[in-house]
């Protein structure tokens, strides 16, 4: 498939997932800030911004509204709105490889943003955030039911999976400073949509070690880092049909993913919390490197060539 379109699909996958996950993280954080008066709003907000990679402003202390503005509404990279419009831009330039239903889904979402934004400023962020989550779910459903399982689909899922690992890592990063018994761990589970599943799996016993274990290592839960890595790996395996694919892992991206996956796979659960920060950082680095490797291998896009006139004075 056209390299430029592959790149667009990969980024559509990433941006939609990013908008979704950011909305979930923000939704839960806002709830916690509102419910728990003991939390220092400014510090908590700044930690969250840091984890999401959004530059916190200097000056006035942040509260729920300020946080929402920055994470959801600002045009800055990493905000929900910027993710939605980037997803839409990428769809717009790759419209002939996504289904009309998918395009209409993203376009209608984008068109509805200003109205939802006004409502959120009036009535609080929850409505806006659940709107984003709903639209992301619609998108996923439409992608699932209208896209052929061809390379385009694989690049979309690859992007989504890579982003999912990244977001799980960011989510856990936001809590590494908490005590193992802190109620904050529940919010982590809620953000990932994993609370119910976790409760069913562990029968209600809540502690940091198990939460981290569940979100990083669970083989069955689709938002666990392990599951997402596995899925990304599967996509790459199917994409990589060159002759080099027969021996070892020729492609750098597959190698990186496989290594990260097996690091998690063969880790003793007891060791999980030792140097958690380092482990998360390593995972984040891997994600970035995978992105670069995929781009080198598949997206042979070239910048516009600037031509020079060869005519010179003789």
């Amino acid at each position: 498939m056209l390299a430029r379109n592959a790149e667009s699909l990969y980024w559509i996958g990433r941006y939609v997932e990013r908008a979704d996950d950011t909305a979930r993280i923000l939704d839960v954080s806002v709830h916690q800030l509102l419910e728990d008066a003991s939390v220092d709003a400014d510090t908590a907000s700044r930690t969250l911004l840091h984890v999401l990679g959004i530059n916190p402003p200097d000056g006035a202390p942040l509260d729920v509204w300020g946080l929402t503005e920055l994470v959801a509404m600002s045009p800055e990279t990493g905000s929900i709105i910027s993710s939605i419009s980037s997803a839409r831009e990428n769809t717009r330039v790759a419209r002939e490889v996504v289904s009309s239903e998918l395009w209409e889904c993203i376009n209608a979402t984008y068109n509805a943003v200003p109205e939802r934004q006004r409502a959120a400023r009036r009535m609080g962020p929850h409505g806006f955030l659940s709107f984003v989550e709903d639209r992301a779910a619609t998108f996923a459903g439409l992608a699932d039911s209208t896209m052929s399982r061809d390379d385009g689909w694989r690049f979309l899922v690859l992007g989504r999976s890579v982003e999912r690992v990244d977001m799980i890592v960011r989510l856990l990063m936001s809590r590494v400073g908490d005590k193992p018994t802190s109620p904050g761990w529940v919010t982590v589970l809620r953000s990932a949509g994993a609370h119910d599943t976790y409760l069913r799996t562990y029968r209600g016993a809540l502690d940091a070690s198990r939460v981290v274990q569940f979100l990083l290592l669970d083989r069955l839960f689709p938002r666990s880092a392990f599951h997402a890595l596995l899925q990304a790996e599967a996509c790459l395996e199917e994409l990589d049909r060159g002759p080099a694919a027969r021996i070892g892992t020729g492609a750098e991206a597959s190698r990186l993913l496989g290594k990260a996956r097996s690091d998690l796979e063969f880790l003793r659960p007891a060791e999980l919390l030792d140097n958690l920060t380092g482990r998360l950082q390593a995972l984040q680095t891997t994600v970035r490197e995978v992105g670069e490797a995929v781009s080198r291998q598949y997206f042979h896009t070239v910048p516009w060539i600037e031509w020079n006139n060869a005519e010179v004075n003789l």
Binding site: L2, A3, R4, N5, R95, E96, T301, V302, P303, W304, I305
Partner: peptide, 8 residues
């Protein structure tokens, strides 16, 4: 068919 730009 593919929709391409000059750089493709």
């Amino acid at each position: 068919v593919e929709l391409v730009e000059g750089r493709d």
